[in-house]
Amino acid sequence: MSRKTIDLWVGIFAVLGIAAIFFLSLRVSTVQTSSGAPYTVYTWFDNIGGLKVRAPVKSSGVVVGRVAGIRLDTQKYRAEVTLAIDPAYPFPRDTVAAILTSGLLGEQYVGLNPGGEDDMLASGDTITMTQSAVVLENLISQFLYNSAANGSGDKSSSQP
């Protein structure tokens, strides 16, 4: 093998390898194209269900940020969830944060429902209006309780 052919093959190899790295970073994953450092917003929930760190923050289904941290606030005994939101998406101060589930068995995410106020949330602000995760067990027990109450009510009304 002459030196020139070796150089040519090494060049082809390097191009292939770099193309593979580009493929992995652009096609397989998504490099964040955000316009800068995300701003953080704090929220408190009564119950976060199965929300995990790094879960997406969505508004109208569009991913606008990630859950940056979850901890239990021992002053209020509520879950403090830190949201890191892309600065390209400003939200009004009266935005409502809710913990929602994508699909029946899907992952949980934080949904932001923007309000109508003119002031925008800045880094370090808190979202006061929140809606906790729906806990399936509570829902089912409520449903059973209601249907049992209705059932007995029907019986008593039909008896006399």
Binding site: F13, A14, L16, G17, I18, A19, A20, I21, F23, L24, V28
Partner: peptide
Amino acid sequence: ISMPLLAAIFSTMGV
């Protein structure tokens, strides 16, 4: 130098 490039090519071919 060559092994990380090979690993990237491997992953790409796997995908």
